[in-house]
Amino acid sequence: EEAKEEALQYIPEDSQFQYAESKGQNYEVVYYCPELTEYYRLRLSAEDGALREYKSWLERGRGSKSVALSEDEAKEIVLGEVEGAESLEVNLDSSRGEKVYKVRFNTDSGSGMYEIQPEDGNILLRELAVDH
Rank of each mutant, 00 (worst) to 15 (best):
residue 61 G to V: 12
residue 47 E to C: 04
residue 87 S to D: 15
residue 54 Y to N: 02
residue 71 E to I: 05
residue 88 L to Y: 08
residue 76 E to Y: 00
residue 64 S to D: 13
residue 78 V to Q: 08
residue 93 D to G: 10
residue 74 A to F: 02
residue 101 Y to V: 13
residue 101 Y to S: 02
residue 65 K to Y: 07
residue 88 L to A: 03
residue 73 E to W: 04
residue 52 R to D: 13
residue 58 L to A: 00
residue 51 L to H: 08
residue 82 V to H: 00
residue 60 R to V: 13
residue 92 L to E: 01
residue 85 A to I: 14
residue 63 G to M: 07
residue 63 G to F: 09
residue 71 E to F: 02
residue 70 S to E: 05
residue 66 S to I: 12
residue 70 S to I: 11
residue 79 L to A: 04
residue 58 L to R: 10
residue 60 R to F: 14
residue 89 E to V: 15
residue 61 G to C: 07
residue 95 S to F: 04
residue 93 D to I: 12
residue 95 S to Y: 09
residue 76 E to S: 12
residue 73 E to H: 02
residue 95 S to M: 14
residue 73 E to Y: 05
residue 101 Y to L: 02
residue 50 A to N: 14
residue 74 A to E: 03
residue 59 E to M: 08
residue 64 S to R: 04
residue 74 A to M: 03
residue 91 N to P: 02
residue 81 E to Q: 15
residue 64 S to L: 01
residue 89 E to L: 10
residue 96 R to F: 11
residue 69 L to P: 07
residue 92 L to Q: 08
residue 70 S to Q: 07
residue 83 E to Y: 11
residue 71 E to A: 15
residue 69 L to Q: 04
residue 84 G to A: 10
residue 95 S to D: 11
residue 95 S to A: 13
residue 88 L to S: 04
residue 77 I to T: 02
residue 81 E to A: 07
residue 67 V to P: 12
residue 68 A to S: 14
residue 71 E to H: 00
residue 89 E to Q: 14
residue 81 E to G: 10
residue 85 A to R: 04
residue 79 L to Q: 11
residue 101 Y to D: 04
residue 83 E to V: 07
residue 91 N to K: 14
residue 99 K to L: 05
residue 58 L to G: 02
residue 50 A to F: 04
residue 59 E to H: 06
residue 81 E to K: 12
